[in-house]
Amino acid sequence: MSSMITTRTRIKESAGDRLFMAVVYTILTLVLIAVIYPLIYILSSSISSPSAVTSGKVWLWPVDISFKGFETLFHTPQIVTGYGNSLFYTAAGTLISVALTVMIAYPLSRKTFFGRSAIMMIITFTMIFSGGLIPTYMVVRGLHLIDTRWALLIPNAIWVWQVIIARSFFMSSIPEELIEASEIDGCSDLRFMRSVVIPLSKPILAVLVLMYAVGQWNAYFDALIYLKSAKLFPLQLILRSIIIQNNSSGVMDAMKQVERQQLAELLKYALIVVATLPVLIIYPFVQRFFVQGMLVGSVKG
């Protein structure tokens, strides 16, 4: 805060207002700590020595820095495979999803596209009503997609919300005059889409790519119900079996080697870091796209 601001506020603000602001800053600082502390704790634990983690020596910063957890991770085939699978699902799934979303959102944004409000209603209705888990599962099974990679790419490829966001972007930022001009010039719709709409829509494409990519990277439910072979599992499912299922099984075997147990504990922290870091690292650079996406969508379209 600059000194200018403080002098100005000292003149204008009453004691009550200053107290109020003190409370606001205190609460926000506490919120900040509450959010950031667990994240730092996990990061610190993941690069501490196994014995420091299990003896509760880590409080804020890493203790006896070691990368044993990460080393072990990268030598566990199950985890490496899962990581590779997740990268594939994210890349392929995002590509399919973005393509399909643009393919429906753009035509629905055109005023001269007959039946667009009916189609829009048909699509939006799926947001508030669904056949349910089992009927959907039956369809996926009927198409022989169970236990194939396609099961994670196709059955939830389009999010209605993304269609709404993309459509309202197209409606507001592709000028009508441009469409008319291209029609006079005899430009076909496909060509117009390819050489005018797509280049003009980079911001919305960024939003779609990011949201679908994060969604795909973080998803586990479809993998849980549709996949059976471990070699197809995404990272999230492997995370679940290592961290969550192990933990809920209760007390650890007391006879196990101390060192092994310590390493197992350390591994969990390292796994969380490895699974979350790709997303959290790019996040500060792309946050504005997400905010943009949310706000475009919140304008009734």
């Binding site: 979303t101 596209f113 048909i122 009927p135 369809v139 996926v140 490829a157 719709d189 496909l190």
Partner: peptide, 24 residues
């Protein structure tokens, strides 16, 4: 051309969203 483009995503909604409603 636009009607052709719309077919794949529409099929998606019919197969994965509306057909399950029938299955219900």
């Amino acid at each position: 051309q636009l009607y052709l483009v719309v077919i794949p995503p529409l099929l998606y909604f019919i197969i994965f969203k509306y057909y399950p409603m029938l299955n219900a």
